[in-house]
């Protein structure tokens, strides 16, 4: 078990390094840097001025070196201007170059400075992630129980009318991406055309105080897409369990159907959905980006979109680190959890 964990964690770190390097490389391609130089030093500067600005600000070094700086394993760049003033990656404005630390990167806790929000990236990501965490929490509260109930109800008696209608419902929700269900829900529940106006079409006010009225639609939109998928997996696993020998034995010895489902089938049927729910996290991340853009809820997804749209390199890098870590950690948890829940699996 320990060996397995260590190997998984090693692969995870390797993957994270590769992915962050890819993002670093792609965001630091010459046209992107040129755009940065032009937005920082003025949009009408000539090509030579762009080159000298990039050189002065440490962008002219090889990509690998700069990746090392960003990561915190290479000493930050320094530049001595003609006036004798020393500037550098790790030297804050007004700080004495002699006392500044040599290394400053993600490992040292320095995530860079956002050019759009004019704030430290770590701070931005912290607050935004908190907002998204609240959203995700309510999504989970709504999604997991309803998906499991639908799946178990559909799977316990295969082929019945209840099964048919619940399965069709699950297929319909998996066929509806968030940007479609979100639009439909907004029109039905908050536009003046239909006139219901039960909920609000934006979640901007939910950032200060969450109410049922302003938060239900975004939560429902993300949850709906996941419900169908998890419910289908639960149904498949439930139907498989219900045909197993021990269920028949339990039925034959006279246990009531309700007890068979609750006591014998349920626990075994929930192993597979657990993995699916964990692997659903990366998907939720996708949904979060769409829904936060649609409902104008300024969480992590919204930040990612605005960072990418405004070529805010440091912030985008920070966002992608978080996104990648979330994906990898959930993969690890799902693997480990699967082993714990299913004693039949032996790892060589």
């Amino acid at each position: 078990m320990l060996n397995f964990l260590l190997r998984r964690i090693f692969t995870m770190i390797l993957t994270a390094l590769c992915l962050t390097f890819i993002v670093f490389y792609l965001t630091n391609l010459p046209p992107n840097l040129e755009k940065v130089a032009k937005s920082e030093a003025g949009s009408r500067i000539s090509d030579e001025e762009v080159a000298s600005w990039l050189d002065k600000n440490g962008y002219a070094q090889p990509v690998l070196v700069r990746y090392g700086e960003w990561l915190g394993v290479m000493p930050g760049w320094t530049n001595t201007a003609d006036s004798g003033e020393v500037s550098g990656r790790c030297i804050a404005k007004g700080e004495d170059p002699a006392t500044a630390s040599r290394f400053c990167g993600v490992l040292q806790g320095y995530w860079g400075f956002s050019t759009v929000f004019k704030e430290d990236v770590a701070g931005i990501i912290g607050t935004r992630l908190g907002l998204t965490g609240i959203l995700m929490f309510w999504v989970m509260v709504l999604m997991v129980p309803s998906a499991l109930i639908i799946g178990v109800l559909a799977g316990m008696r295969e082929g019945t009318k209840l099964d048919r209608s619940l399965s069709t419902f699950s297929i319909a929700t998996t066929a509806t991406p968030e940007y479609v269900s979100g639009v439909i829900l907004i029109v039905v529940f908050s536009s003046s055309l239909v006139g219901l106006k039960w909920f609000k079409g934006t979640a901007t006010s939910a950032m200060d105080s969450i109410t049922f009225e302003n938060f239900f639609l975004p939560v429902l939109t993300i949850a709906l897409y996941g419900i169908g998928y998890i419910a289908r997996m639960t149904r498949a696993s439930m139907t498989e369990v219900m045909t197993a020998q021990y269920i028949r034995t339990a039925r034959l010895k006279g246990v009531s159907f309700k007890n068979v489902v609750m006591k014998h089938a349920l626990r075994n049927a929930l192993i597979a959905p657990f993995t699916v729910i964990m692997l659903q996290f990366p998907w939720l991340l996708n949904g979060v980006v769409i829904v936060e853009t649609l409902f104008n809820y300024k969480g992590f997804g919204w930040t990612l979109v605005s960072a990418a749209g405004n070529n805010d390199i440091q912030l985008l890098l920070g966002c992608s680190v978080v996104a990648v870590v979330v994906v990898l950690v959930t993969q690890l948890i799902s693997d480990v959890g699967y082993v714990f829940l299913n004693p039949r699996i032996r790892i060589s």
């Binding site: 992915l19 792609l26 391609l29 046209p31 990366p282 990418a308 992608s320 996104a323 990648v324």
Partner: peptide
């Protein structure tokens, strides 16, 4: 590696005018 990438991030990195230029 590719699967661990959030799809939208990948799209934002690949499908921009700057990326087309490269």
């Amino acid at each position: 590696l590719i699967l661990a990438f959030p799809v939208i991030l990948l799209f934002y990195l690949l499908v921009t005018p700057e990326m087309v230029k490269t």
